[in-house]
């Protein structure tokens, strides 16, 4: 079922990978589902124990392999199930965001945020907004293809 590149976008939709921590955001996505908050269908969620588990490489590899967007979401800062995991995540993912243009990837394809297990409505908005943004950017043309971004950023 793979191979988003071979099928026209309009039919296939976009391929967005979500990395959600088990305790807050995965629960928040469940809450949104339980409340029947309608969302676009482009997102595929991978459950990780904590955003602290989030190796920036997971996001980079997803984009290199051809994902159109990567969304990471965890517990709000100070509210981590493991006390500090999301604080490490915040630093790593912020660095990654700045690093993506140098790989020739539009940094707007990557987003990280915090959604708690009770914030179903917020999750709906996060997914809707990010999916919309990816639809506007269009399919991922492949690594390096968005290098004009690098040139723009490189003064």
């Amino acid at each position: 079922m793979s191979g988003s590149n071979s099928v026209p976008v309009t039919e296939q939709g976009m391929k967005i990978v979500g990395f959600l921590c088990n305790w807050c955001s995965y629960g928040g996505a469940d809450t949104a589902g339980v409340c029947r908050f309608k969302q676009p269908t482009d997102l595929r969620i991978i459950r990780i124990p904590c955003t602290g588990r989030m190796d920036p490489l997971f996001a980079a590899k997803s984009l290199i392999y051809g994902a159109d967007g990567v969304l990471v979401s965890g517990c709000h800062p100070r509210d981590c199930h493991y006390a500090v995991g999301n604080l490490y995540a915040r630093r790593r993912l912020e660095v990654l965001k700045h690093f993506l243009p140098f790989m020739g990837i539009d940094p707007r394809r990557f987003h990280y945020t915090w959604v708690s297990a009770s914030e179903g409505q917020l999750w709906q908005r996060v997914v809707t907004d990010f999916s919309e943004q990816i639809h506007q950017l269009g399919p991922n043309p492949g690594i390096g293809a968005e290098s004009e971004i690098f040139e723009k950023l490189g003064n």
């Binding site: 296939q12 939709g13 996505a29 339980v34 029947r36 309608k38 269908t41």
Partner: peptide, 19 residues
Amino acid sequence: NIREHVSWINNDREANTRK
């Protein structure tokens, strides 16, 4: 998770099935 993350959040049967 094909209920909370799929069937309950969109009614597009084709897209849901693919997801």
